[in-house]
């Protein structure tokens, strides 16, 4: 990856909680239009790493640059204004609003109209909101209370909200967690299509390896806070260290596995 074109450049990111080193010196880059997956077993530091990218947590050391601009430790709202959309592992939406209004709030914010005391929000950029809803395929629910949506649709709505500020970078923390298998594949295909069409860089964490290997251009593997592998899906699939982590290098697991295979 050429660093000149880097949309996101992360350098030596480090975070500890007390004595636990959650993330240790993670560095990588992400180009515009590239889909990058961050994988690793539970407790590898994926979420911590993620939260440091958009300012949810402050890193102890290291730097995060967006298009060459240092955004380390900036609060999430600033990072968003620079063109970073975010979805959460457990969806965060506005349950007392309709589906369309959820998107309209993001549009209002994007238009710097938050302190507007006069206009009517339900009429604010209605068409733009509906376009975003149609893009993610929930246009049929525009008038429904957001609290009523099924979880898969909430995930889609979150994507629509994240796209409202025409982001250059999407950060998606386990975008398909808690979804039915078919919905997972649909949502990721949709995300990949939008990212390619609009040349948005996507960084996502994921446990579902089907999703990861189908869509990622490149994969980062994190274990115990350290990056242990990086490369194309094919390279990562063959990496002995990665195989050890995912298939188990521990003797107990291995033994049981063989036992099971034998029986």
């Amino acid at each position: 990856m050429s660093t000149a074109a880097a949309l996101l450049a992360v350098d030596g990111l480090t975070k500890s909680y007390g004595g636990v080193h959650a993330v240790r010196g993670v560095s990588f880059t992400l180009a515009a239009g590239e889909i990058l997956a961050l994988i690793g077993p539970n407790g590898a530091g994926k979420s911590t790493c993620f939260d440091m990218l958009n300012g949810q947590r402050k890193p102890d050391r290291g730097r995060v640059q967006l298009l060459g601009k240092d955004i380390t430790g900036q609060p999430p709202r600033r990072v968003w204004r620079l063109g970073v959309g975010r979805t959460f592992q457990i969806t965060a939406t506005f349950p007392t609003m309709t589906v369309r209004e959820n998107v309209q709030v993001a549009l209002v914010s994007h238009a710097n109209q938050i302190f507007n005391l006069w206009r009517s929000t339900p009429d604010f950029q209605r068409d733009a909101a509906d376009r975003l809803l149609a893009l993610v395929g929930v246009e049929g629910y525009a008038e429904r209370p957001c609290g009523e949506l099924a979880y898969g649709d909430l995930k889609r709505l979150e994507l629509a909200i994240a796209l409202a500020n025409e982001p250059k970078l999407l950060l998606m923390d386990e975008p398909t967690a808690g979804m039915a298998p078919r919905d997972r594949i649909e949502l990721m295909r949709l995300t990949a299509r939008i990212a390619r069409e609009q040349s948005i860089g996507v960084l996502f964490t994921e446990h579902d390896m089907d999703v990861v290997f189908e869509h990622a251009d490149r994969i980062l593997v994190l274990n115990r806070g350290t990056l242990i592998a990086e490369g194309s899906p094919e390279q990562v699939r063959r990496d002995p260290q990665v195989r050890a982590i995912y298939l188990g290098e521990g003797l107990v697991y291995d033994a049981r596995h063989q036992e099971g295979a034998g029986a």
Binding site: N54, P75, R77, R78, W80, F88, T96, S109, I114, I161
Partner: peptide, 13 residues
């Protein structure tokens, strides 16, 4: 009120 996390993530102070 609905979601502090989400509102900060869409640029609301």
């Amino acid at each position: 009120r609905d979601s502090g996390l989400r509102s900060e993530a869409v640029g609301i102070n």
